[in-house]
Design a protein around this nucleic acid. Structure first.
Length: 903
RNA sequence: GGGAGCUUAGCUCAGCUGGUUCAGAGCAUCUGCCUUACAAGCAGAGGGUCACAGGUUCGAACCCUGUAGCUCCCACCA
């Protein structure tokens, strides 16, 4: 049977994925085995796979597949997140394209469209994960807005409300004028921008001064006479909402302004001058305009000094009626215009270039406006305590641990969480209001009515509705923040709320590993931990592996807008899923960002091909059952067996430390270098007259078994090709699939064999080098003489050296050989007789260099050993080592000297 | 403004308790090979003042101090 020369992933990936599905290998139900559980970080339901997902899910699949092979009950729960702002924005955009405005729709109509959209596009991303080979238990697929999960969200809200952790109030929130909703502090991204600092003059009047502010001449007179105060601002449009001017009480410049008033330009509002040590005298003019409705600091000042609050912004970022001027115009347009108008009126003192930080919405990228509004909040102070403790005490491990500091810092200064969003797509807040503004929190309308009639201490009901009449009530229009559902994910996917003592939750919770991006450490990870302790009195997971951010070669974050992100599905088509998986892991040190480049996937594909061809070679051999095993083959098998065991131990350790790319590289080298380049070459049958000789049965069987072990080690990394070759290597009974094969065992390693091989491989390399430098064809047989220290020792690997160097003879000698090229490995001398003239000078020079080097080495060792303080202070094993180095170097120098003398 | 981290070969990164000639790996590069498993390959080679300056030590890529550059996180100074 002819086997293709290159590995073709396309044909086999679907085949094996369907096979695994059909055999239900991904399926997990509780049993007596130890569970190993991962819950997927649910991707946005309408999203498509990007490189970050690829990395994330590759790692998860690697861990899950290995756990499965270790005999654990591996359960990887997939699912999607309803992502309220992002999804709602997408639906709104889609409707707009169809000429439909959200504002023209009722809530129900809109939600109908949204669900249609979700049903159509939702879950594409999960289909894409299948292409990657993700072995999720698809029967467990959950969605954060499905009925059960939504119910859990509502129950949790009610519970936290009843426990007093949730409150409602008017607060300064981060307002997203594009998304038309409040967002949490964590959803605001601060960026430094170049802006202008405007110095604006406000005229000063006495409390009882009666002047006509509308009269320009009067105002000009004031300005000219110096009766004004200058404030500095980067947001001049907020002037219209100013209700005070604040200066420092110790500021000599402004002491005279006590009890006076400043006049806000345009609106001609007289506002008090207040004194507060919050002010920094050095900044700007030392005078601050106070806009309580649109700045958090100003808001606090306003409360302290009893200032009025004038909200001059509409939700969409245009000026409101209350502003009085520029009504309906966007704030940024107004910013330009008002400066011009102030200038014209002589109110601008100067304008400076200025760098400041501006908040942008994570979802819509709109400039966030601080805005006062009625929102729901979760008090974080108490509820977050166990979440901090259990990370600090190591019950939950962050990998890499450098994130513990960041985590600690955040948890210690955590703010209350604004959990309401002015959206429709999401879990609607279970709060109900009557027409008198009373409020109760209840799961259903009928329960709410009951509460209005018989309020509990928690209900915000002033006067109960009498039994005789029914209250007219209406539910809160807002929905909950998406993270208010995803923080329950590790519990809710196992129905831990619906059925708190259920089989699933008791078996799978707490889960083992969470693999996610550091970007959402606070958004999501910290909150899951909080919810875990609040609702299960137990951590949600033990290890949090934080991946890096996928960047392009120039270090830019991959993003749609930059167009620098490759399409993962195209990559899979080009390089095969296994190749891409390897490519992702090759460049992914834990916790560090990774500079992705397609060439890594190419390397992954080449690796597939290498494995494939090793298979072709082995498959092509004919086995002669009568042939005895040669001594060379015997030693080759023994050596590789030792090497394999040694490396399995190392690979296991690397897994335990979550060193994924090192684990991959170790496996890679074991397969490519040790197995292909050395072992297979050692045992490869010779060619005689154009025909390959047969291989003995014993060696062949061992080789197949080695190959199987390697495939097992490869399986978590490269599931498809390993399963394919597993089946091509042998006829297998139904159910003998590598996905459920057991992970290679380890046992004591014969260390001496490894050391001897090391020596032999050095000899082989030296001979190859000489062949190359002397232009001796690899096909030409040559002879090699070795002179060992005692003169009689033979090496276990002699037969192998003979084969790999294409020698016609390898003899041990006690005397040096004339007319030969020579080299030294460790303390042994080697000679290759050479017929043509040898460039004696060149030979001498080469050996002399070698000698000088060794001499230099010996000297450095001698210096150390001659140093009394070293001998006195160094640990015994270090000292012994130095002595051994000395002896080895001396022996080697003797050997080289001897060779030199005989040239 | 506060905090954390990083800087090792052309690139991406290891280097764990300071101690082997410890200066490494993969990729890339160069040289020679179409040697019946694989040119997506084989064999071999070159390549680094471990950011810089001091210090501690018998000994420093590793510990300490300072400097520079980069990155990230947090924060309500107009």
């Amino acid at each position: 049977m002819e086997i293709a020369k290159t590995y073709d992933p396309k044909a086999i990936e679907n085949k094996w994925y369907s096979h695994w599905l059909a055999k239900k290998y991904f399926r997990s139900v509780p049993d007596e085995r130890e569970p190993y559980t991962i819950v997927i970080p649910p991707p946005n339901v309408t999203g498509v796979l990007h490189m970050g997902h690829m990395l994330n899910n590759t790692i998860q699949d690697v861990l899950i597949r290995r756990a499965r092979m270790l005999g654990k009950n591996a359960c990887w729960v997939p699912g999607t997140d309803h992502a309220s702002i992002a999804t709602e924005a997408k639906v709104v955009a889609m409707l707009k394209e169809q000429g439909i405005n959200k504002s023209d729709l009722t809530r129900d109509e809109f939600l109908k469209y949204a669900w249609e959209w979700k049903d159509k596009y939702g879950g594409i991303i999960l289909k894409q994960l299948e292409k990657l080979g993700a072995s999720c238990d698809w029967d467990r697929t959950r969605f954060t807005m499905e009925d059960d999960l939504s119910e859990a969200v509502i129950d949790v809200f009610i519970d936290l409300y009843n426990k007093g952790h949730i409150y409602r109030g008017v607060r300064m929130v981060n307002w997203d004028p594009a998304g038309l909703t409040a967002v949490s502090d964590e959803e605001v991204i601060h960026k430094e921008v170049n802006s202008k600092l405007y110095y604006v003059k406000y005229i000063i009047v006495d409390a009882d001064e009666k002047i006509d502010l509308a009269d320009e001449a009067v105002v000009n007179n004031k300005l000219e006479s110096g009766s004004y105060i200058t404030v500095a601002t980067v947001r001049p449009e907020t002037i219209l909402g100013d209700t005070g001017v604040c200066v420092h009480p110790d500021d000599e410049r402004y002491k005279k302004l006590k009890d006076k008033f400043a006049v806000i330009p345009f609106v001609n509002r007289e506002v008090p001058i207040i004194f507060d040590d919050y002010i920094m005298m050095e900044f700007g003019t030392g005078a601050l305009k106070v806009t309580p409705a649109h700045d958090i600091n100003d808001y606090n000042l306003g409360i302290k000094h009893n200032l009025a609050v004038i909200d001059t912004l509409n939700p969409n970022g245009t000026m409101s009626e209350a502003a009085g001027f520029y009504v309906g115009k966007d704030r940024f347009e107004v910013r330009k215009q008002i400066v011009k108008d102030l200038e014209a009126k002589g109110h601008i003192a100067k304008v400076e270039d200025y760098k400041n930080k501006v908040g942008y919405s994570e979802r819509t990228n709109a400039v966030i406006e601080p805005r006062l509004s009625m929102q729901w909040f979760l008090k974080m102070q108490d509820i977050s305590k166990p979440a901090l403790e259990n990370v600090l005490n190591g019950n939950i491990k962050l990998i890499p641990d450098k994130f513990i500091n960041t985590y600690k810092h955040w948890m210690e200064s955590v703010h209350d969480w604004c959990i309401s969003r002015q959206l429709w797509w999401g879990q609607r807040i279970p709060a109900w209001y009557d027409d008198k503004g009373n409020c109760v929190v209840a799961k259903t309308e009928s329960e709410a009515i009951k509460l209005f009639k018989n309020p509990t201490p928690n209900s915000q009901v002033n006067s109960p509705t009498p039994d005789s009449s029914l209250p007219t009530i209406k539910q809160d229009e807002d929905v909950l923040d998406t993270w208010f559902s995803s923080w329950l994910w590790p519990i809710s996917v196992f129905d831990g709320f619906k059925n708190p003592d259920g089989k699933d939750i008791n078996y799978y919770y707490p889960t083992n590993d969470l693999i996610t991006a550091p970007e959402i450490l606070f958004f999501w990870v910290a909150r899951m931990i909080i919810a875990g302790y609040e609702y299960r009195q137990e951590k949600p997971f033990t290890n949090v592996y934080l991946t890096g951010i996928v960047r392009d070669k120039q270090g830019r974050k991959m993003s749609k807008s930059l167009g620098n992100s490759p399409d993962p599905i195209e990559l899979i088509e080009k390089f095969g899923a296994d190749g891409v998986r390897v490519g992702m892991l090759l460049c992914s040190p834990a916790g560090n960002d990774l500079m992705f480049d397609e060439s890594y996937c190419e390397q992954g594909r080449n690796f597939c091909n290498k494995i494939w061809n090793a298979f072709r070679l082995v498959k092509g051999w004919s086995v002669d059952a009568k042939l005895p095993q040669s001594s060379g083959n015997k030693i080759a098998v023994e050596w590789f067996d030792a090497r394999l065991k040694e490396q399995v131990v190392l690979i296991n350790e690397l897994y335990d430390k979550y060193r994924m790319s090192e684990m991959l590289m170790t496996t890679y080298k074991l397969v490519w270098d040790d197995f292909c380049a050395w072992y297979l070459e050692m045992i490869k049958p010779d060619f005689v007259d154009g025909n390959s000789l047969a291989i003995d049965n014993k060696t062949f069987e061992s080789t197949i078994s080695f190959f199987e072990s390697l495939l097992k080690l490869l399986h978590p990394l490269m599931p498809f090709i390993s399963e394919e070759i597993w089946h091509l290597l042998k006829d297998r009974k139904g159910g003998d699939d590598i996905i459920i094969a057991s992970w290679p065992k380890t046992s004591e390693v014969k260390q001496s064999l490894l050391t001897e091989f090391d020596h032999a491989s050095n000899v082989v390399t030296e001979v190859r080098n000489i062949r190359k430098s002397k232009n001796i064809s690899p096909k030409e047989k040559i002879s090699l003489f070795q002179k060992t220290a005692s003169g009689t020792e033979t090496s276990l690997f002699d037969d192998i050296i003979k084969k790999l160097c294409n020698l016609d003879k390898l003899e041990t000698t006690q005397t040096s050989i004339e007319n030969a090229i020579s080299f030294v490995v460790k303390q042994n001398e080697y000679f290759i007789p050479f017929n043509s003239a040898i460039d004696i000078n060149a030979e001498k020079e080469r050996l002399q260099k070698e000698l000088d080097y060794t001499q230099g080495f010996l000297n450095s060792v001698m210096v150390k050993l001659g140093n009394e303080r070293f001998v006195a202070n160094a640990k015994p094993e270090i000292l012994a080592n130095e002595n051994k180095k000395k002896a080895d170097a001396e022996a080697r120098i003797n050997a080289i000297k001897e060779v030199l003398a005989n040239i």
